[in-house]
């Protein structure tokens, strides 16, 4: 269990139970990050460990990146390692059902890009 202190010095109950696996959704069109949440603050800046970036496309599926980090032109899931995401760019943080997520055949998923968030 990770303790995260907010600017008011308390844990926000809102994020309780979400300290597992996360899929924050960048507001920039089609990039999704997934990783273990190691920390956050009140502006929802996040520290993600073992971060993966998934790029969805209409024409081809999402494929797993190789451990080495080298990937062919078809591979659009990229291993990033430890990442810090700035809160401004985050729209939704969802708790990932790892079993369901693992059962998905990413190579078959096609998705149109999300619209950008226009403030």
């Amino acid at each position: 269990m990770l303790l995260v202190r907010t600017h008011r010095g308390c844990l926000l109950p809102l994020r309780e139970g979400l300290l597992k696996r996360f899929a924050p959704i960048s507001r920039h069109v089609l990039v999704f990050y997934q990783g273990n949440l190691k920390g956050y603050d009140h502006t929802i800046n996040l520290v993600l460990e073992g971060c993966k970036e998934r790029i969805y496309s209409q024409s081809r599926g999402v494929e797993q990146a190789r451990e080495t980090g080298t990937y062919s032109s078809m591979v659009v899931q990229v291993q990033l390692g430890l990442y810090i995401c700035r809160g401004d760019n985050i729209a939704v943080i969802g708790e990932v059902d790892e079993v369901e997520d693992a059962s998905k055949d990413l190579s078959r998923i096609r998705a149109e890009p999300l619209k950008p968030v226009t403030h």
Binding site: G17, I25, V92, G94, E95, K104, L114, V117
Partner: peptide, 16 residues
């Protein structure tokens, strides 16, 4: 939006 398929619980940033 198959990207969002595996989400059961989520946090939504107020600003979006």
């Amino acid at each position: 939006y198959p990207q969002l398929g595996a989400i059961k619980n989520c946090f939504i940033r107020g600003s979006v």
